[in-house]
């Protein structure tokens, strides 16, 4: 599929009532936004500052609208097409799919979402944001969940995309598009083989996981305690940070309101606070340790894959200059 056909395909999706969301260049920055024209999309493969997280796990969502004691679940979801989803963000979607497997709100949204990945690994301007060695491999697609994937053609000079499908939905859509547009249907189907590669869990992850508990005795966390200002920016940009709180928001009308699920941040001091004021994560050192523990021990324990996709966004936004790859290096070599 060449660029022209791709633009046509995007227009066709819009005609099919899909809201199309993808990377677009604004003031020199790549942002993920809802686009109105397919020409707004940027396929350069640069890493957008934010991930696609909020389109599947919104920062605020209404679970119920209540009137007195009548709680009505709001499971409405609109049709959306996420286009240009990088391998990093696809890995995060893999995690959401596990974490929210039994969540009717997430599942309703996912069912109405078309996920279109893109192969180019971002060319980092600054290599210091690179988290770990996790390069693009031939077999990676079979370990990711997506509908359609825009792969780079084998011949480097070609501007064509090699199209893959990863779901029945993806196949169906492309067949429909081919029928209605005259595009010569040409794609390869990749059967999902689960999140973990045949050779087993990521060895890099296993090494960090093994070293994490013992690292508590070192000065790694005390040093970070002195630097981290607990702004929570890393948790906002992190594609895999999904923790949330449940709160009620009363309306002005008497007895009416909404029960909401909102992003939370484990860096906020009240995150672990219970009635009476006791906090189980008492200080910055304990909270930052908990953040790393979640990504490199708890998620691997639960799902056998890392809770860090390696995008480096946390390092890019940290006002204190904390770099995740440096922290991981010090855990490994302690």
């Amino acid at each position: 599929m060449d660029k022209k056909q791709l633009q046509k395909f995007i227009q066709w999706l819009q005609e099919k009532n899909y809201i199309v969301i993808g990377p677009t260049k604004e003031d020199g920055q790549i942002l993920i936004k809802t686009i109105s024209e397919s020409s707004q999309l940027d396929f350069s493969g640069q890493l957008p500052l934010y991930s696609f997280k909020k389109y599947l796990v919104p920062s605020r969502e209404i679970l119920f609208k209540y009137k007195k004691d009548d709680f009505k679940a709001d499971l409405t979801a609109f049709k959306q097409a996420l286009i240009g989803v990088s391998i990093f963000d696809l890995k995060a979607i893999l995690l959401y799919n596990q974490v929210f497997e039994k969540d009717p709100y997430y599942q309703a949204r996912l069912n109405n979402t078309l996920i279109i990945g893109q192969s180019q690994i971002p060319q980092f301007q600054n290599l210091s944001f690179k988290v770990w060695e996790d390069k693009y491999e031939e077999d990676i697609l079979e370990h990711l969940q997506f509908d359609i994937f825009l792969g780079q053609a084998k011949e480097k000079k070609s501007s064509e995309f090699k199209i893959f499908t990863g779901s029945k939905k993806g196949q169906q859509i492309l067949n429909d598009f081919a029928k209605q547009s005259g595009w010569k249907s040409d794609f390869e189907h990749v059967e999902y083989a689960g999140p973990i590669k045949e050779e087993g869990a990521n060895p890099e992850m296993m090494k960090i996981k093994e070293k994490m508990p013992g690292s508590l005795e070192t000065d790694i966390w005390q040093n970070l305690d002195q630097r981290c200002i607990e702004c929570g920016k890393c948790t906002i940009v992190c594609p895999t940070c999904f923790c949330f709180s449940l709160t009620d928001q009363p309306c002005l009308n008497k007895d009416e309101g909404m029960r909401k699920r909102c992003w939370d941040s484990c860096f906020y001091s009240e995150f672990s606070e219970i009635t009476g004021g006791h906090k189980f994560l008492k200080n910055t050192a304990e909270r930052i340790y908990n953040w790393y523990y979640h990504k490199f021990v708890r998620i691997p324990d639960e799902y056998n894959f890392p809770g860090c996709v390696g995008c480096g966004r946390c390092s890019m936004v940290c006002p204190a200059g904390i770099k995740i790859h440096e922290v991981l290096e010090s855990i490994k070599t302690k």
Binding site: V99, F100, K102, D103, F242, C243, F244, S245, L246, D264, C266, F271, S272, E273, I274, F280, N290, Y293, H294, V297, R298, D301, E302
Partner: peptide, 18 residues
């Protein structure tokens, strides 16, 4: 005793190790 929001092991507030 922990801060429990969701009750189903998702929201992360009540984690104890893994």
């Amino acid at each position: 005793e922990r801060r429990m929001h969701c009750g189903i092991g998702v929201c992360q507030h009540c984690s104890v190790g893994s």
